[in-house]
Every structure is written in structure tokens, then in C-alpha cells.
Design a protein around this nucleic acid. Structure first.
Lengths: 202, 202
DNA sequence: CTGATTATATATCGATTGATACATAACTAT
DNA sequence: ATAGTTATGTATCAATCGATATATAATCAG
């Protein structure tokens, strides 16, 4: 049984909350566009506190990427996994994506990975692996949901789960890109139904 | 008849070539990640020459975006427009996209707009309009090619040209994102045929 | 209490950033 | 040849960048 109490002076800020704020800044301004002043101001802490808690700028950046991949960015996937009716599940996923791309509470538009992180691939060590892992993890979860439907016999045994998962992912990326470019949610929502049908056709 | 000869000392560098090099730098490093040193070095000119020829960093950036939208980035679209057989046209488009995303001569991966410019939307004046215009222009050209097929009576009159153009565009963005993330062309090429079929189904 | 440990606040570091002043070079027009 | 115009090369600017040294404050173990 390990002691949870920590030594020394306690933090007077919330670690996770500060990390979320940092993510918003990187999301909006990009890695290089986000200055330490921007970050510390948004996080409500001073420079030395940032360095003590998160390491340098690059380490903080990688932590925000992990936060996005593991928690924030997969909201549509969770919705997809938790809806039993596959038609509603797909529609729910795409609708969540559209909503996410245009109405994120942070004010940032699009997808953190697709709209900001992607720029730093090949420039900052540790980013490329994380982006690739995020793609593969998401597609696996999407494919698994389709496969579950095959088990339920509501989709034929030769239904191409992996291909449709990849397709669903690309539709996600398309909506996220459009959201970043300024498209409204209503505009994108219009052809969701047609796409749902397409994803289930065979 | 206007005189083409210009006054003063002539440039000792090629304007378009330098602009292309600047695009490569922005594409690889992003707007904020690209320093004036990076730019002048790649362009083979000095700072004052850059400012005299292209204006400040932002103006140079916008010029590279226009270059991409008007010339370099639309290569797959041109291939799509120029192939008469619609099946081959779609396959050619997607194959060109995959090739473009992974084998661009500049060494940069993905799509300049989707992989770099998108980060600066909302940060640099003039970028958002350009990205939105690029999407709409491309989709219009893609839709027009489908519409031409309806005129040839090789597609039904109720074929959803606009929706399929949007779909084709999103597949493009998906491939570009994967290319930036490090996916190989071979890997992406695998499900091109299935997608061609899907795009023509009704 | 004392000592150890960790976080905070202030102040500031050298390096790099985007951008420019100045003098010179190369061209056209007359 | 001279004047006008534009580009180049050197040298350098103030501002901002990411990062840290130092001293102080707040907690726990004993």
C-alpha cells in the first residue's frame, strides 16, 4: 500500500485542467505559434511552474497529444461503440464529428491532430508515432464495432469491416478539415444520411 | 503593346522557382516553424531580396498558398478531368492523390493545405478564405466531371454529382493525412479499387 | 520545533526572431 | 555620359523566443 500523500508544497493549480488549456492553445495556434507566454497565461501558471510540472515545451506538447488521443478526441468513437443499432451508431458518429469539428468548448475548430499536430510531424520527435498510433487505434475500434454487427448477424459475414472503418475515418477527417476551414455544422450535416446508407451498403 | 522590359537592375534569381522553394519550407515546417533563415537559405536569396520581391513573411506565405491552389496541388484534379473513362478517371485521381501524398518531389508529405496551412486558419489574415475557396473550387471541378458523365448518359440523370464530389474530396483528405502520418503509398493503394466502385454505385 | 522536499514568484539569461538602413551594383531611358 | 530605377550584400536592429537562477513559501516526517 503506497502512500498517496506527496511531500513538499502542494500545487495551487489543477494539473489536468492546465493540460487541457495547453491543448487548446496548441490546437488554436499550433506548436510553434504557441509561445510560452500564451501557454502560461492560458494555463494560469508561471513559467517555472510549467517547467516543473510538465517539462519543457516539447514534453508538454506530447502530453497534450496523449490527452487528446486518449480522452478528448475519441468522443465520437465512444458514441459509435455505445449505440447498439448500427445505423444509429454511424449517424451518431458522424453527427458527433460534425459537432466536434465546429462546436468544441475550447473554441478551437477541427481536430487537434488533423488541424495542428500534423504540421509538426517530422519536426518534433515523438509526434509521428503518436499520430500513426491514433489512426490505427481509432480504425481498430471502428472496425471492431462493425465486426460485432457481423456477430449479431445484422451484417453479412463478408462485410468489409476494415475497409468501412477506414472509410468512416476518412469521412471524419474530411469533416474535421471542413470545420477548421470554417464550414458550419448545418452545412456538413446535410449529407450525413446519404453517407450512413453508403457505409452500410453491400 | 506594352513594353515588357523592366527598369533597374534585374533579379538574379527565378521568382517562381524561389516561391516553390518557399512553399516547400512552409509545407515541411509550417508557417511559424519556418524561419526567415530557413526560407532565404532554401530560396537561395538574402533577406532584403526576399522582402523586396515578395513582401513580408505573411505575404510570401499567402503567395505560396496561391501557388499551391492554382498550380501544384491540383494535379490529381487535372488527371481526373482529362481522363474520359470515368472509372479510370476516379482510379487515376485516387492513385495520383496517394502518389502525391507520399512522393512529392519537394520531400514534403501530405497536402500543403491539409498538413500545414490549416494550422494557421484563424491566426493569419487571408488564410481562411483561401482554404475555403480551395475546397469549393476543387469540389466544383470534381462535380463538373461527374456531371459531364451524366451528359454522356453513362451515369443516370439522378446521379448525385455534388455528394460524390464531396466524398471524393474527403477521400483525398484522408489519404493526404495518412501520407503525412507516414503511411506508405502501397498500403493506401490497396483499397483504391473498392473505393472506385463505391463512388460509382447507385 | 527542525530538516527535507516541492512549488511559487521575480527577475533575467543568451539566442533567435522578423525586419530594415545603408551603400553599392546593374540595368534602362534620354 | 548622366539621371532614374531596381536589386543586392553587409551589417544590424529591437522584440520576442524558450528556458533558468535565485530566493521564498508551503507542506510533511521526525
Amino acid at each position: 500500500m503506497t502512500d498517496t500523500k506527496k511531500l513538499g508544497r502542494p500545487r495551487n493549480f489543477d494539473y489536468d485542467e492546465a493540460l487541457m488549456q495547453a491543448m487548446s492553445v496548441f490546437w488554436t495556434k499550433g506548436y510553434d505559434g504557441a509561445s510560452l507566454r500564451d501557454l502560461t497565461q492560458a494555463m494560469g501558471i508561471t513559467g517555472p511552474s510549467l517547467y516543473a510540472a510538465f517539462g519543457d515545451k516539447r514534453e508538454l506538447y506530447l502530453k497534450t497529444i496523449d490527452l487528446y488521443a486518449d480522452v478528448d478526441g475519441c468522443a465520437p468513437v465512444v458514441a459509435f461503440e455505445n449505440e447498439e443499432d448500427i445505423t444509429k451508431a454511424i449517424k451518431g458518429f458522424l453527427s458527433e464529428v460534425v459537432h466536434y469539428a465546429t462546436e468544441h468548448e475550447s473554441g478551437a475548430k477541427g481536430c487537434f491532430l488533423a488541424s495542428s499536430v500534423v504540421t509538426t510531424v517530422g519536426q518534433i520527435e515523438g509526434v509521428a508515432e503518436r499520430v500513426e498510433a491514433a489512426i490505427e487505434d481509432t480504425e481498430k475500434r471502428l472496425a471492431a464495432r462493425f465486426a460485432r454487427e457481423i456477430d449479431k448477424c445484422t451484417l453479412p459475414t463478408d462485410f468489409p469491416s476494415r475497409e468501412r472503418a477506414a472509410l468512416l475515418y476518412d469521412l471524419r477527417q474530411g469533416y474535421m478539415f471542413r470545420g477548421r476551414a470554417g464550414w458550419s455544422g448545418e452545412r456538413m450535416q446535410k449529407d450525413v444520411d446519404a453517407r450512413v446508407q453508403m457505409l452500410l451498403s453491400y
